[in-house]
Computed example of a mutant assay.
Amino acid sequence: MKAFNIEDTAMILIDHQVGTNTWASTTPLELLQRNVIILAKFAKGTGMPTVLTSSQETNVNVQGPLMPELQEILPEEFAARIKRQGVVNAWDDENFANACRNTGKKNFVMAGVTTDVCMVAPAISALEEGFNVKVVCDACGSTNQIAEEMSWRRMERAGIGLTSTNAIVAELVKNWASTAGAIAFPLLT
């Protein structure tokens, strides 16, 4: 899979909700949230278009709102987030799919919680529509390790690149001495 560049890539963050995040026991909660924040700050700092979506935010006792840090980092994207009302495959929600398409980018860096339910289907759907997709595995997580590993296998077999937060940021930066590097380096240390 070809390396992604900032200029042709959008950041897609799916269902990083205060309740849903706690279901992702395969990635420690603090690490998962840290990585989502890094991805959001990097996208904001480099001007990458970002799409946010949530599922049933009003189900406060289970799923709840998106992480409040996302509202602080990406206030416009947060206000424009796609609030799905139960559609499991986010790509099946026409508002979400159109928001991703409307970024004008051919490459998507995607992360979502939970990997097995919230991430696999939209990543494969975007790929099948012709987008290049890389999933940031340490900004995702599932309820158990078997579900997580099966999700990785499904996505890899479909042709999705699997990566980590630090790896995708480094791939996009290309040069630590660049403007993007100056944005990224403090986030990763």
Score class of each variant (00 low, 15 high):
64 G>L: 10
64 G>D: 09
84 R>T: 02
151 S>F: 08
100 C>R: 05
182 A>T: 13
131 F>G: 00
72 E>H: 14
91 W>D: 01
143 T>I: 13
161 G>P: 01
144 N>T: 02
109 V>D: 02
91 W>E: 08
143 T>Q: 12
88 V>R: 09
112 G>C: 10
181 G>Y: 08
54 S>W: 01
125 S>F: 01
79 A>T: 14
88 V>S: 09
85 Q>A: 05
137 C>N: 11
67 M>C: 05
151 S>M: 06
162 L>C: 13
150 M>A: 05
138 D>P: 04
113 V>L: 10
89 N>Q: 13
161 G>K: 12
65 P>F: 10
155 M>I: 13
66 L>F: 11
58 T>H: 07
82 I>L: 02
103 T>S: 03
152 W>G: 02
70 L>H: 03
147 A>W: 10
141 G>L: 10
133 V>I: 15
117 V>P: 09
82 I>S: 04
113 V>M: 09
163 T>A: 13
164 S>T: 14
101 R>F: 03
172 L>N: 11
143 T>R: 14
153 R>Q: 10
72 E>L: 14
62 V>Q: 09
57 E>N: 07
73 I>R: 03
142 S>T: 03
180 A>G: 09
55 S>T: 15
103 T>W: 05
117 V>Y: 12
170 A>N: 09
60 V>N: 03
173 V>S: 10
130 G>D: 06
170 A>W: 07
